[in-house]
């Protein structure tokens, strides 16, 4: 995966994670590379979202198809592919849930946040409780309060997730990430009902 390739235009050697030829400046065909490496961000759960956005925008300034509209069909195709990959990587890293999934995958842990075989009764009960509280709320004021509660629960879970990654306790991280995705899902439902 991390091997060198050769520039299609000038045969110069292209190192992994590099997409412009240093000699002739031509765009290179995209290679499989993990989201953190693509954006040039260190592989950690805690990251500065502004820094992430900066890295993302800098890459799009280089590779967006608008920059290649005068060039050959091949180069337009490469830039569309690369720009799509950069978009997707940014979206994945920008959300805590998918960022955690990417990290777990890199650590060799098969994690899907919507894992249907998940049956940790403690987590499920907790989620049910929040959901019922919202449904029983009589007016919009009470509903807003229960959304606030949900929001602080989400923040707590993200903090716990961060700690478990630091401790390299990936099984716990996997569980917390599933919990987080449940919480985010009911938040979307709550917002619809407001």
């Amino acid at each position: 995966m991390s091997t060198n390739s050769v520039c299609w235009n000038c045969q110069n050697i292209i190192p992994p994670n590099v997409f412009l030829c240093q000699k002739c400046n031509k765009i290179q065909p995209p290679k499989q590379v993990n989201e953190f490496k693509l954006l040039g961000i260190s592989e950690e759960f805690d990251l500065d979202l502004e820094e992430l956005e900066d890295a993302y925008l800098k890459l799009q300034q280089l590779f967006h198809p608008d920059k290649y509209s005068q060039l050959s069909e091949k180069e337009i195709k490469y830039s569309t592919l690369l720009s799509s990959m950069i978009n997707e990587a940014y979206q994945k890293l920008n959300s805590s849930i998918s960022r955690a999934s990417v990290l777990l995958q890199l650590k060799g842990i098969n994690s899907h946040p919507e894992d249907s075989s998940f049956n940790d009764s403690q987590v499920l009960e907790e989620v049910m409780e929040i959901q019922n509280e919202f449904l029983e709320a009589e007016d919009s004021e009470q509903k807003k309060i229960s959304i606030q509660k949900l929001n602080s629960r989400i923040t707590e879970t993200i903090d716990d997730l961060s700690i478990s990654f630091k401790k390299q306790d990936y099984e716990i991280a996997k569980k917390l990430n599933i919990k987080l995705s449940y919480l985010e899902k009911i938040k979307v439902n709550f917002k619809k009902q407001l």
Binding site: Q60, H64, D66, S69
Partner: peptide, 15 residues
């Protein structure tokens, strides 16, 4: 303005 930049190059980017 965007058309001009597509043909003449620019540092701006539209996402």
């Amino acid at each position: 303005l965007h058309g001009y930049e597509l043909l003449n190059g620019s540092a701006n980017v539209l996402l």
